[in-house]
């Protein structure tokens, strides 16, 4: 009798425990891991224009630095302004509907595209493209991965609480690890302003 009770207790107890473990483990990974990126914590957005890096690089034969370059004063040009796009896209270059829409919505009214920046950093971060490109001689891929080869822009996943992008953003820890690895300075004001 005693033996029976003991085994029953043991069995039932572990079951609840495992159930609880499995349940919360699943909930945690599903709702809070950014792999699935589901509400309520995460939200998804689509870029306002279905820009294809692939078309520009492979088909049009452009280089990264045609649009993203280091200015003479050492600052990074960032995402090109609509003027830059309009240099080629005053008239449609292809036959896609996206391009026609892009010209209709942004180029003609001369309106800046509200791009969603995958690597948007907090407001007190200073990032020097100059130092990473010219001193560390990094390739764009080191930080931006395959961003320059995609055909459709990846879905923009962001946290609804903090409003920061999730997948492609580099967090401070990653910056610091890399700086450590390459023996680069790691002081507050190296990257903060």
């Amino acid at each position: 009798m005693a033996e029976h009770n003991a085994s029953q207790t043991k069995k039932g107890g572990w079951g609840s425990f495992l159930l609880g473990f499995a349940f919360m483990f699943a909930v945690g990974w599903f709702f809070f891991g950014n792999h699935f990126a589901v509400p309520p914590l995460y939200g998804k957005k689509i870029q306002p224009v279905a820009f294809s890096h692939k078309v520009h690089v492979e088909d049009a034969g452009m280089a990264c630095k045609d649009c993203h370059y280091l200015k003479a004063n050492g600052r990074w040009s960032g995402i090109p302004k609509i003027d830059k796009c309009a240099e080629c896209h005053q008239e449609p270059q292809g036959e896609t509907k996206e391009e026609a829409n892009f010209i209709k919505n942004y180029v003609k009214p001369h309106k800046e595209v509200p791009w969603l920046v995958y690597s948007r950093q907090p407001k007190n971060v200073f990032f020097s493209h100059a130092a990473h490109l010219k001193i560390a001689r990094f390739n764009c891929k080191v930080c931006h991965g395959k961003m320059g080869y995609n055909d459709t822009p990846p879905v923009y996943v962001y946290s609804r609480l903090s409003k920061y992008p999730q997948h492609t953003v580099i967090v401070m820890e990653a910056c610091m690890d890399c700086h450590k690895k390459y023996d680069a300075p790691n002081y507050c004001f190296t990257c903060h302003k």
């Binding site: 609880g20 473990f21 499995a22 919360m24 945690g28 891991g33």
Partner: peptide, 15 residues
């Protein structure tokens, strides 16, 4: 046990 298991499960998740 469910609660403890859940807590432990959560700790091993990003939650």
């Amino acid at each position: 046990q469910f609660v403890v298991g859940g807590a432990l499960g959560a700790v091993f998740s990003p939650l």
